[in-house]
Design a protein around this nucleic acid. Sequence first.
DNA 1: CAAAAATGTGAGATCGTTTTCAGAAATGTC
DNA 2: GACATTTCTGAAAACGATCTCACATTTTTG
Lengths: 327, 327
Amino acid sequence: MSIGIKDVAKAAGVSAATVSRVLGSGSVSPDLRDKVEAAVRATGYRPNLSARRLRSQHSRTIGLIVSDIANPFFTELSRAVEMAAHQADLRVMLCNTDENPEREALYLEMMQEERITGLILAPTSVGAARIATMDFDFPVILIDRAGPLGAHDEVTIDNAESARLLVEHLVARGHRHIAGIFGNTSSTAAARHEGYVAAMAAHGLPPHAQFVAPTAEAAGAAFMRMVERSLRLDAVLASNGLILLGVVKASKAMGLEMPRDLSVVGFDNETWTDLVGAGITVIEQPVAEIGRTAMALLFERLACPHLPPRRVVLSGRLVERGMPRPA
Amino acid sequence: MSIGIKDVAKAAGVSAATVSRVLGSGSVSPDLRDKVEAAVRATGYRPNLSARRLRSQHSRTIGLIVSDIANPFFTELSRAVEMAAHQADLRVMLCNTDENPEREALYLEMMQEERITGLILAPTSVGAARIATMDFDFPVILIDRAGPLGAHDEVTIDNAESARLLVEHLVARGHRHIAGIFGNTSSTAAARHEGYVAAMAAHGLPPHAQFVAPTAEAAGAAFMRMVERSLRLDAVLASNGLILLGVVKASKAMGLEMPRDLSVVGFDNETWTDLVGAGITVIEQPVAEIGRTAMALLFERLACPHLPPRRVVLSGRLVERGMPRPA
DNA sequence: CAAAAATGTGAGATCGTTTTCAGAAATGTC
DNA sequence: GACATTTCTGAAAACGATCTCACATTTTTG
């Protein structure tokens, strides 16, 4: 079959154990080490990871389960995680649930079967609660979405405060009739809704909130219905990039012009948000930092398994664009 | 440690071999099967994939190496591949090189060490040539980027023809001074350039082509330089989504208005292309079909290793948007 | 210089499965 | 009823690495 460690050993005139020590970090005399390295190159030997993992009982692999790989937030996040993992000489297994709890469950099983070292997980809404009750043979770090407090380590951003910033931005620019459209599946959206309602109340403004499936289509349709109902709308807050997209597309379809008839603000600083009209004000999430923090928490947890669970909250950054409401 | 097949066997009062047969597809009498299944549930047993792969000598895993996970083309592609793989009960290992040949090499090594069943690969420009000369223990299917003919199976789109369609579109709408900006790293961009030049020649128009690093910044800067040099430019063809983005941002920065001063066309039907101005005409790639085709080629290759290598060319679809050139 | 300690090496056990093989039991055939 | 088949089952080998342990050699120490 393919060449194994014994073939290398034979070629180098040493035992398999010595080859293993050269490959790993055992102490080997320089001349034998040279011979082995030469033999490895000569034979083109590639260690069999399955065998290695089986025997050594650790996978040097962490899992990363995201809920939507098409969302730039998660692709950037996976980049950051991958980078940090690579520095620690760990592999990353990236899986995408597409917000489907069944796929999430499937991947969670797979992670157990792979005997991963740790898991970074953006749970689906349904999953978050269930996962808090399960116990795993490895540490789990939740990101983006929060679970019940105290079950696992978590990294999130201050969603309520970020929503407040967006409302303040709109109010400062003269908007009063501010609607909010929120995803109906994540704790993240719920927190953003909370911040929106509170900020509106602080200005004595009535909230117009709507929860929708987190797709551009659903958001667009919801927005159209809102406009038909209440003509006085002059701004919309969208709880994520997809909803933002839906609202922008719908308003374009209805012939609304961006600074004149409507302002839109939202979350996630996607590439297109500065191309539309005079630009769209958004909250940019510190994606890379979220990834790095999650990895840091994971390492600490691996070092000290019995620390109490921690929740790290990072801040979103307001990226101001667009123009004030015309008089 | 964690529970193994022997623990399950003991709990069920059978041998480990029988448990293995129940889990796999061996023939086991119904009553023993029931007992084993009960024992599996009772113990919460999860098979150890490393051990399984080591013994059974196949990983039931395919590799997918893409060159830029942030590109929606590749995220959608990975979705399609994942879906097809899942139906065949295969896992997908997704890796992202970020166009970095070193990371590509690293991942290729890893794939060998994982003893994957097959690989679907969008090579970096540097990588494509080198990979043609290497030989692997598993079939390799190239996608998006072509290698030297005959080395591996391939799935691409008809890039030259697609570029021609874009030129025809512009010419039909009254444009004559059409520049082209192309990535300088992929065979894909080269083919698109070829199609552009041929189509321009067919109309007796002089080409204005420029090759740039495939980033929005480089493309924007190149476009600005072009405008400064030749004021008569009335349209631009961009060879991929990122370059398109760079051109649109730069033209916006220079105060050019989209139907009035300039038309832009390009590849990849990204979400934002219908939001900008009157919309941007693009070639939409049949991403899902590319993914499915790659998987199909892989399965056929696994079935018949000695078939001559095949190249499948799919067609892009012209999505017409925007408005004709003002008189 | 002898004893003690440190170092390098290889034989063989081991990780948790699947697979082979042989035997037992059940079934079929004449 | 005896023999040939088929069907199940368990003991033990095998997968390819690492790790333990014992032994040989070298180095340190008093």
